[in-house]
Design a protein around this nucleic acid. Structure first.
Lengths: 216, 216
DNA sequence: ATATAAAAGTTGCACTTGCACCTTTTTTAT
DNA sequence: ATAAAAAAGGTGCAAGTGCAACTTTTATAT
């Protein structure tokens, strides 16, 4: 993940902080972040540590929405933070920078070179987050688990053009990512194995028909 | 939809065009846009007219991914354009402005006030697109049609705080938006009506239990 | 080293949903 | 004004999926 402060000197970062009137909060592992920082319209950056955006289901299930690591950005407009039943939990001791969105969008800022550099970095970061979200939408739009899996494989394949890739998370989390039931997903993975579409070795997934998969 | 050229004079827009080396293409109604503009990494704006991003399913179904109207932005990173089987069709005679993404991100641009204004507008537009996409993800993550509908109603309710709203599209398109089968959706709408959760009068949907819906 | 918890993997069953195929109503075009 | 097309609305049925309830394997903690 690119840093929002790329190409900025320490001095420029200090100036930026004061221009935007930022607040920096620290959180202990497992502490809730939102109650402290929540206001009308905010934009935040994880300076140190990591956190997770989780959604509390009406069944009491906690659904992982997004993993936030160092330099991740989140906020009212971006990411899944805009809902009542969302929660953000620090996964380690963390430091979070919070900016008022209106201050971020103040046209006066554009006078300052350091702001424009920062803003350009944010643009790039949000664009790539948006791209990832659109990938996920393409998967979630598929009605059947098999099609979701194949769409996911297709996206991974198109990134590397290799006939294998490594899951960046557990199978349980893959099921959450695809928004399907875990055991139903395994059932489908099993038939894809049986039909020699894929091989699974731990988190390594080999696409045996890579070229034909992206017909789907 | 905010204009990407807000707060810019005609002269500034001209300067911007030449700084970014933009191309402007015109398309007739029902013409395909992508073949003309497609390159490694682009960023585009609908200057006049309107278009639709559609995805060609392996069954031959055309799935509407996104409606683009005047001032809409789309491109390789944003929106659903980054896939092979995507297509963009002009719905009227249209004019499209195309920028090379690398030129857009050239740090030299930050010297020019008019660029920074333009860039700030883009930031805001993309942020709100991203917000919309995240709303949709929240819906698509729900496993059951009923929960998708209730999540959708909840989002609409939280926007206006009124116990009614008007569908911005047809029921057929609502089914596509929720990524569910149209008749299965109707079946679920019917039981929501029977259980006095909602009333439907054309495109007006009345939420009879608005406060309790967002428990879901 | 052992206990504990989490993830991986599997299966039966009931419920949900997609799909195909209708009818009726509304919209659009000529 | 009329025809044609699209949208709204509905239903039976088969296939797919969520869910619960397991076992086995792997990871984590003490």
């Amino acid at each position: 993940m690119k840093s929002p402060f790329e190409s900025l000197s320490k001095v420029q970062i200090e100036k930026l902080y004061s221009l935007l009137g930022v607040h920096i909060y620290t959180f202990l592992k497992n502490e809730e972040i939102l109650p402290t920082i929540k206001s009308e319209n905010i934009f935040a950056i994880i300076l140190e540590g990591s956190a997770q955006i989780v959604n509390n289901d009406y069944n009491g299930n906690e659904i992982l929405m997004e993993n936030l690591t160092k330099n991740s950005v989140f906020g009212t407009n971006i990411s899944a933070t805009n809902n009542e039943d969302c929660n953000i939990i620090a996964k380690e001791n963390s430091k979070v920078l919070v900016i008022d969105y209106n201050k971020l969008m103040n046209p006066e800022n554009l006078k300052y070179k350091y702001f424009n550099i920062f803003f350009s970095n944010l643009f790039d970061i949000i664009n790539s987050k948006y791209k990832e979200t659109n990938e996920r939408v393409k998967i979630l739009e598929k009605k059947q688990i098999r099609d979701k899996l194949l769409q996911y494989f297709d996206i991974e394949y198109s990134k590397s053009r290799l006939n294998y890739f490594y899951l960046p998370f557990s199978f349980k989390e893959l099921a959450d990512y695809l928004a399907v039931n875990r055991s139903a997903m395994f059932r489908e993975l099993k038939s894809l194995k049986d039909e020699h579409f894929i091989e699974i070795h731990g988190r390594k997934i080999i696409l045996l028909q890579a070229k034909s998969i992206n017909l789907i």
